[in-house]
Amino acid sequence: MTAALLRVEDLRVGFAAPGGTVRAVDGVSFAVDAGEIVGLVGESGSGKSVTLRAITRLLRRTATVSGRAEWRGRDLLALPERALRAVRGREIATIFQEPMAALNPVLTIGEQIEESLAAHGGLDRRARRARAVELLGLVGIASGAQRLRSYPHEFSGGMRQRATIAIALAAQPMLLLADEPTTALDVTIQDQILKLLTRLSAELGMAMVLVTHDLGVVAETCARVCVMYAGRVVEAGPVGTVFARPRHAYTAALLRSMPQGGAARQPLVPIPGQPPRLDQAIPGCPFAPRCGFVEARCWTDAPPFSQVAPAQWAACWAAERVGAC
């Protein structure tokens, strides 16, 4: 086993709120190997985006963050601001959900790509221009030389997301953190962007953490998946195994609530209830109130995150029974 590129250990993020501290992320651990694509799935409020933002220290100062985010042997959470800045962009790049909001409206696409190059590269002006055209080509925007002069509002949603990807790629990062990169786009464009990201990851040997609420997106792009619920990782493993034989009741319920490609006309089974409030401590398993496999100990004891199959971990007391169905 190679040493992981990024190893997140026991990450906790709390936000002070009137009713007490909201535990948005509650002991999340996962690792990303070089060149690997890892999916972080969960419903809204499960803490997936906060996890991502905590790793690059993008959260407001009001958030209390603890745990470790080890990047090539250095803890990002303890790094001085200067050293952190050297890692950001150059080694770890991030793309966001809303491509319009992620681009500065008063600068042209070219200026923004070239700025990213200038901040990290040290290329001269002409080389930067050439590289910017090259980057636009890489993300599938043709006639880049003219497109460089366009402003973000002159681009379509899909092209904007391609442009943000080009900016992120400028410094040739080793890891790309993608926070729901396709959620704001329509379905056909979603597919194009996902294909683009997987292709870039393979071609450039760039690892990727893909945050999404869409299991279909994970199935299409990721090698491994971490399923999050109520600020914790409840199940992790290779995408094929987790989807074929989930060992956590939540993952199983999530998969049943989605249309399956093969089996036609099967009724979908929604998950009843709502995710728990995170401003009070949850004694047992956070999914217990909505769970079809619930046992007595689920209410009182938090299930340990343990290995349930080769390379597959789950935090579920009923892992055996879930896996058997």
């Binding site: 993008l58 050297a86 991030t94 992620a102």
Partner: peptide, 17 residues
């Protein structure tokens, strides 16, 4: 709070920039 300001931070840009 805009994403492009966050984007600048994650691109490792300096505060003056």
């Amino acid at each position: 709070g805009q994403d492009y300001v966050s984007a600048c931070k994650v691109l490792g840009y300096g505060q003056a920039r």
